[in-house]
Structures are given as C-alpha cells and as structure tokens.
C-alpha cells in the first residue's frame, strides 16, 4: 500500500541515476590492457613459421577473451567476465534478483494491466469492482435523493442533504457488497489458477460459482445455489463478451 510504504516499504536503497563525475570519467577513459589476445598472436606466429602455404586472411581473427571463470563451470547464462576484462567483475559480483518485479507467468492469465501475482490481481480486481459499485450505488442514491419528498417547506439545502444521504447510503452498501464478492472471486480465481496451473474459462466459471455460493452461504442452501448460478451466468456472459471482442 502506498500510504503505508513510508512505514513498511522504505528499506529499499535509492538507486543513483544522475550522471556522476565517476561515470563521465569511466566513459572518457580508454582502457589499456597489457593482456595480449592470445589467439591472434598465436595464429600469426604459426602462419609465419609454418612452411605450408595458408590462405591469406584478410582480417585477423577476432580476439575473443574467454577467461575461464567459476561461472563457466556452472553454465549460467549471464557471464560477467564478458563485460570487460579489466573490470574484475568475475568475483565479488552480487546480482540483484528482483522477484517482486516478475510478472505473473501462469499460462493464459494476461489481462489489461500486467499482473505481478495474486496480490496484484486481488487488489486491482477488488478496486475496480468496488469503485464501480460505489459509482453505480451513488447514482442510484442520487436518483433516490432527487425524487424524495421533502415535507412542507422544501429548500435547496434540504435537497442537497437528501441527495448526499442517498449517495452515502446506497453507494456504500452497493460498493461494500460488490467489493466483498470481488474479494471472494479473486481469491477463488487465483487459487484455481495455481492449483490447475493455467487460466481459462472453466476457472472463471468455477471461481464465480464458488464466490457466489460463499457470499450467500449464510442464508441457506437454496440462496447459495441461486447466488452461485447468478454469478456463473454473469461470469460466463463476461467471458463470452471478452472472447468476441
């Protein structure tokens, strides 16, 4: 959460991005290596000393510096020794592993916003649903407040108060209910994704049925089944709409 990040997420070190004097110096410096590229010199000496005529080479072989490091043995994809021979990067090199930045890699789960896992899905999905519920409920309450009778001496102040009361009553109720439903749905969806290892329409339908049933579970079996079927129908309609678009 951003408003708590000052308290909890502040341990990340600031990354220096300004062009510093050392970076300018680094770029303006020509690195002079006393290490002769061994492959080119050896080929030159062998061609001069051998009696067998060899085809003339137009350009010398590209000196490839392959210093054997411990990383070669492990066969990692990123070889720091290739950066520069004088940089001395082959040892004491710490690589930053940004696990938080990894995107969601479950198959077929790409959506409008890039997601970094189930917490991101939960937050964005719940936020969108809650906000739309708040807006819809607010409009419903505003309509109700606009048409409510005000008694024998109506005034503008009373009308505004009535509208605001309607907004806060209907808006918060609709938003809260939809938001809780979205929490259930997103939790079920992410759980099904990780259990099955991929994301498809069956997951959506199953998660919708589960969330509808949980949301209505305290009212009895019949309302729970009704809620599950309504949610499944809504999710199926949404999936069909998304597939056609």
């Amino acid at each position: 959460m951003s408003f708590l990040s000052g308290l909890f997420g502040a341990s990340s070190e600031p990354i220096e991005k300004e062009p510093s004097a050392s970076a300018e110096l680094f770029n303006s410096t020509t690195f002079r290596s006393n290490v002769q590229p061994s492959s080119s010199s050896s080929s030159a000496s062998s061609s001069s000393s051998s009696s067998i005529p060899q085809p003339p080479t137009d350009q010398p072989a590209v000196p490839t510096q392959t210093a054997p490091t411990a990383l070669d043995a492990f066969g990692t994809a990123f070889d720091p020794a290739r950066l520069h021979p004088l940089a001395g990067l082959s040892e004491n090199l710490e690589l930053l592993q940004l696990d938080e930045d990894k995107l969601n890699d479950i198959e077929g789960s790409a959506s409008v916003l890039p997601s970094r896992g189930w917490t991101d899905d939960l937050c964005v999905g719940t936020g969108t649903t809650y906000l739309s519920g708040l807006l819809i409920g607010g409009m419903w309450g505003a309509k109700e407040g606009l048409s409510r009778p005000l008694g024998n001496n109506p005034s503008m102040k009373l009308r505004i108060n009535s509208i605001l009361n309607g907004c806060t009553r209907r808006g918060s109720f609709t938003g809260n209910s939809l938001g809780v439903l979205a929490i259930f749905y997103n939790l079920a969806n992410s759980s099904l994704d990780s259990i099955r290892g991929r994301h498809d329409t069956y997951n959506v339908l199953g998660a919708a049925a589960l969330s509808g049933a949980i949301f209505k579970s305290t009212a009895g079996v019949r309302p729970a089944l009704v809620g599950a079927s309504i949610m499944t129908a809504a999710a199926g309609a949404w999936s069909a709409f998304k597939n056609t678009v």
Binding site: M1, S2, F3, S5, G6, G9, A10, S12, P14, L98, E100, D101, L113, P114, R116, T119, D120, L122, C123, V124, G125, T126, G127, T128, T129, Y130, L131, N176, G179, V180, A182, I183
Partner: peptide, 29 residues
C-alpha cells in the same frame, strides 16, 4: 511514495490497486 517505487503501476492505474488493496485489507482484517 517518496522513494520512487518502480515495482508498482504508473499513476492513474495505481489508484485502482490502492482502492482494492485497502478495501481487501479492511474487509479481511
């Protein structure tokens, strides 16, 4: 966000994320 957090979405979209995160935190807690 005073430290330039690059692990989050850019600004208009992060509002949705914060809405949902705060709502989920409040509702679950």
């Amino acid at each position: 966000m005073s430290h330039g957090d690059h692990s989050r979405d850019p600004c208009p979209y992060v509002i949705l994320n914060d809405f949902g995160g705060a709502f989920a935190m409040g509702a679950i807690g």
